[in-house]
Amino acid sequence: MTYSDIEFSVNNGVAVLALNRPESLNSFTAAMHGEVQEALAHAAQDTSIRALLLTGNGRGFCAGQDLNDRAVAPGEDLPDLGDSVEKYYNPLIRRLTTLEKPVICAVNGVAAGAGANIALACDIVIAARSASFIESFSRLGLIPDSGGTWILPRLVGMARAKGLAMLGPKVPAEQALAWGMIWQVVDDDALMSVATTLAEQMATQPTRGFALTKQAFAASAANTLDEQLELEKELMRAAGKTSDYREGVAAFLEKRTPRYIGE
């Protein structure tokens, strides 16, 4: 696969997808969306891939939508932003959140607008100390998309979510960590090393169990406690039938390191 707006590689069971439009802070165009969709589809289908690492090249992770890609001449009708969300951003968030493999995001520099919410939709978010998160939609009279209105209240509570959405402050990485938005903050020069090591470690673990865990958490927001307990029962039943569960038990009893195959 040859790409121009992203870089995609697979090593040690980890697919690394790097947004690669550094001159525009990796802001999204329709062309880049197409390349990301293709790469994620490949990551979903390739059983040798057991973890995905998402990052951005250059001095920022992603500045959201490239407004130049939506430019219209004076007097022309403005583009249908709902159509853009339906065609590009919603499928991207659905793919990341339902991918049956762990998704690690390494945030270098700014993550703004859709870029912030794409990062926050990942399973594990590691940020460089210089990174920041900005819900910049309000500056254009827009609402947070890419799942922002769903993700933010669940991460930081409704009061902070509304403040982030309406005031658009820059949230430094350390503050994002303190508010529970992300998992870890590391020094800038250690970001990719730490994120890659974590992704490679997760790629050796029970992949199917991770997929079922993601499914359980995704359902929890809408379920009652009783419904969630029932779901846990069914997902635990499925997990108990996997080869990795059998291997985990055997390794424990034999006092050795388990060799999981992700199934």
Rank of each mutant, 00 (worst) to 15 (best):
N11I: 08
M236N: 15
G60E: 13
E247W: 10
K214Q: 09
L19V: 09
P153D: 11
V171T: 15
E254D: 15
S136W: 06
R154D: 11
N68K: 07
T149I: 14
N11K: 15
G34E: 11
R21K: 14
A128R: 01
L177W: 06
L99F: 03
Q45I: 00
Y89R: 01
N117L: 01
R256F: 06
A190G: 00
T196S: 15
E76V: 02
L164F: 15
R59H: 11
S27K: 07
E232N: 09
L40D: 04
G60Q: 12
N68G: 13
G64E: 03
L96M: 10
I118K: 07
D80H: 09
P91M: 04
L167V: 14
A127M: 13
P22Q: 08
V185Y: 05
L92S: 07
G262K: 09
S220G: 12
Q65P: 00
A218S: 14
A51E: 05
P153K: 11
T257S: 13
L19G: 09
V156T: 15
T224N: 03
S243M: 05
L96W: 06
T2K: 13
T224G: 04
V194W: 00
A43R: 07
K101A: 04
G113E: 00
A30M: 05
A216F: 10
L120M: 05
A106F: 01
F137N: 11
H42R: 15
V103S: 11
V107Y: 06
K214N: 06
V185I: 06
A71R: 14
D145E: 14
G209I: 01
M158W: 02
I6P: 01
S132I: 01
P22G: 08
V10K: 07
M166C: 10
